[in-house]
Design a binder for these strands. Sequence first.
DNA 1: CAGTACCTCCTCTGATGAAG
DNA 2: CTTCATCAGAGGAGGTACTG
Length: 290
Amino acid sequence: MQPQQNNLLETDLLKTFVTISETGNFTVAAKRVFRTPSAVSMQIRRLEDQLGRALFVRHPRHVTLTADGEAFLVHAKDILRINDEALSRFRVPQLEGRVRFGAPDDFGVRYLPAILSRFAATHPLVEVEVFLSTSVILARRFEAAEIDMILTVSAQSDPAPGQVIHSEPLVWVGARDGMAFSRTPVPLALSSHGCPWRAAALAALDKASRRYRIAYTSEAAAGQLAAVMADLAIAPLPVSLVDEQHRRLTEKEGFGAIGSYQLRLQKNPDIGSAAQAFADHVRESFGRQE
DNA sequence: CAGTACCTCCTCTGATGAAG
DNA sequence: CTTCATCAGAGGAGGTACTG
């Protein structure tokens, strides 16, 4: 692979590269950047030719970053961020203000860093005050007008207030080589009372006439995962939290479908333009328009 | 300076092979 | 059988050099 004598990196290629690194998949990334998979494939080949290094390891069903790809990703994100900052500096009037945003703890760990980072790049003068807690507590503070907007989780069938911005299946999860799922009664690590995941999971077990005992309760998914990793219990969790350290339990082990959960955005009707911009940004981060 | 021909690049469709 | 990355060939857009 001979490096090309081109000293300028194209932001289009960088955007595609970053998108693939996020999705781990050329086809999904192609949809996100509104190009065909073949066009994306060629863009990456062009970038690799320009750098003289392979950026991805091609697996049968997905791609992963090489060590060079990991290193280049940091620079690619920096360049795109600077690009966004430069554009936003001249394209849109600078919004100022403050937004009080509440979200579930797990959301804070998983999604918030990227959302805050991108929002800060385009709205550097807006102060974001973040409240992380359970959906129940967040709803209470939202009702008391202590928070401008909140994200809450609800069951698929639950007629909860707010706009659905994300939906995802819940699955039963155990430790990768664990045996907790085979015990009778099966030990569970659940979220706190009031969480729709908890109700949906128990309903699924009741429906299957499966005997269980609640061994651990945690307000955050991290607490449930700790019990799962120690093989002390199994837990109902969003499918996106399952990785190579876990074992996804299915009908084969006697754990059928739980259903899905929804992430809903509620906002105060009379929020300012800065808070409105943040609400739009959160929605767009999940691919939803108002 | 405008028009034309040629070249390069990009994206598309459709096909292919690998792998689950 | 399905999914995925990649390849080949075709067509379009834009840039450049040439000509009158």
